[in-house]
Amino acid sequence: MIQIDDNRCDLCGACVGICPADAIAMSELKLRIDPDTCINCDLCVIVCPFNALEAEHEASKV
């Protein structure tokens, strides 16, 4: 799961552009990540200019 910090998210769309699974949308001026489509690759976390995304899944806890 990717956690979104809405206070930090600037809706720039970098994460949407990088997402290989098309799991991210910016509907109603809010970032949404579909957990069923998300492949937990964390590219969105890496590319976020404002550190608004955080990975919270098994792989990241190792």
């Binding site: 970098a14 552009g17 990088i18 290989p20 098309d22 590219l43 890496i46």
Partner: peptide, 17 residues
């Protein structure tokens, strides 16, 4: 940059890291 229109039409638009 956040384009999804192309994706919905079946084009490969995801940017490489």
């Amino acid at each position: 940059v956040e384009s999804r229109v192309g994706r919905w039409a079946g084009l490969h638009t995801a940017v490489k890291i």
